[in-house]
Design a protein around this nucleic acid. Sequence first.
DNA 1: GTTGGCACTCTTTCATTTCGAGTGCTAATA
DNA 2: TATTAGCACTCGAAATGAAAGAGTGCCAAC
Lengths: 363, 363
Amino acid sequence: MAISERKKKILAAVVEEYIRTAEPVGSKAIAQTAGLGCSSATIRNELAELVNMGYLEQPHTSAGRVPTPMGYRMYVNELMQMQKLSLEETEEINQRLNTKLQELDDTISQVSRLASQLTDYPALALTAQSAVTIKRFDIIYVDANTFIIVAMMSNNTVKNKLVRLPVSVNEGLMKKLSALFNANFTGISEDQITPLLINSTERAADDTMGITSVIASFAIEILSEADKPMAFVTGENRLLNQPEYRDPDKAHKLMSYLSTGGHILPPADNMAGSEEVRVLIGPENVAEELKDSSVVIASYDAGDNTRGLIGVVGPTRMDYSAVAAKLSFLAAGLSRRLGGGEAPVEGMHNKLIIKGDDPIEHR
Amino acid sequence: MAISERKKKILAAVVEEYIRTAEPVGSKAIAQTAGLGCSSATIRNELAELVNMGYLEQPHTSAGRVPTPMGYRMYVNELMQMQKLSLEETEEINQRLNTKLQELDDTISQVSRLASQLTDYPALALTAQSAVTIKRFDIIYVDANTFIIVAMMSNNTVKNKLVRLPVSVNEGLMKKLSALFNANFTGISEDQITPLLINSTERAADDTMGITSVIASFAIEILSEADKPMAFVTGENRLLNQPEYRDPDKAHKLMSYLSTGGHILPPADNMAGSEEVRVLIGPENVAEELKDSSVVIASYDAGDNTRGLIGVVGPTRMDYSAVAAKLSFLAAGLSRRLGGGEAPVEGMHNKLIIKGDDPIEHR
DNA sequence: GTTGGCACTCTTTCATTTCGAGTGCTAATA
DNA sequence: TATTAGCACTCGAAATGAAAGAGTGCCAAC
């Protein structure tokens, strides 16, 4: 059954009013605000039909109408127009994005924080999951008991580790090991680092002190760490601003679910290539804990052909339009910085300001 | 005015019962549980005096008694006996402390998480604030546009940065700069890195491309970063478990105050040397937002003669005894790992397990 | 100094009433 | 046929009031 133009307008009006006030919306209010030239009685008839069709529901007989998930879905898909951000907003976001992008992790966690601030909902950010390998090893001899392992990854981050041992090492061994690791351990994945490989390297290096295996462990560690995506959840407490979470138990349940991390968001591959913002409304969420909340997700290009996610969680009565606009803009800004396009380089004109791990290989 | 032995017992009983139930405690309940051989009428007389003395108060005329901050203070100072942890608890904590102490920051944030889990209150952890310097520079030439700066700090952590430039560099320059920075920039504080020093280094290195200043910026950045302590707040949502924070507004206020970080805890130097657990009850807190909450703080030895903090925030009706015991144990465990004593070294018997940045110089 | 007893106070709880927003329906109208 | 005015009706929210109960303070007796 098709939905008439007027019904659409009314539905939109209900959704928007309800989003604004969190109170069931009555026929009178619509007649006044929505500006279609008809009386509240007409609206009532239409509303009744919209209830029949499943787009709206009544909390009780003598109350106004509230959108159902299906109603929100219709609104998001067809009726809503993505809010435009004001100049001030875009500027503020850009500015916030520009300031101190230190470590990649820090950047992402900052972005999560920013998303939460902008939307006033809890936000989460997931780093991209990608098959990282080590591109280059350097082993720095410090003193007889100490050396530093430096590993440059394929995504151009650098990991290091200071190792202190009860045995004596010397610069020659370090050099030898550097060369061997660069030859044998670069460009491979975690599970390609086998005991066999370690043993043969150990023999080749004349290493009788187990140093090879220490370095290999480090390689395994950072590879496995780089593999799994990280989740940053921020602003959980903002949930308490929402009337639907004034019940502490409800709030607590969702908050503790959130704080366990990023199971919440669908795998990033699902979003690959999509520049769109995705909306999951109430029961559309898989997780039981989210069945009466909504999630809005944008994906960003994290470079290296991978995508990460920024998401926001709130009641189904969420301001989809504003949130979508903000997340989309945020994701785009982040993509610009992390992803393809011109690889940012150290800005030497900024006298003493350094931008952290920004530099990412162009691909 | 001295406080009689019996009054002490009664006060302790009130505090403990109130901590347990969060309900005002009546004379009858005390007569039954506290096991002093006297009737509820006697207790009533004593209670009335305790109210006069300021240790207890009545929410209203016909209610039981509730401890005042002064009452809690008396309890904490004189009446409470620190709870002993059960064997299982100590074992669990130790185990959790042992698993993957990666980066120092991660360790501290994990400990914060652990503290929150153990106590079921929000927890925060502060890293130590210390005058860190750089001990050693290594500048690694990668390719004509790329190099890596590696800086080993006086607290034996290692920082690195990948720099990508639009100009060409060569290995010779890198070597020269390495030597110069090791000579001129080690062992000094952030504000000793003056434009003068940078300029003279630049000239000495024949650096016409501003690379010296890039490296100097990095030095400044990591020094200033290492200077300021970092705060990790976890488990804010656990506040909602507490009846005194069932009011969402109250909870929200405190939670958002907490999430702004570590202004909450007094500076760590105050705690220097003290192995004690410190308790701040209600109005004893300086921050307005904490005036009716309590904070329990333990300090840990972070090595290098510095101390960090672990704290827990909750209602004044906090289980001080249990919390103090847990925090104290946790701090001790952390101190053992980070602080003085035998410097931990890479355990090579653990075949493939590496403990991260653990190794700390003995001093 | 301690105790039993008892009147008193104040909150909590529950039922009842009132109020009002909003509906659904009917009949009149364009 | 679609729209509208009017009106009775429903149901929740807020207000009111009565009853219950916990706990006290105090007094007189021990």
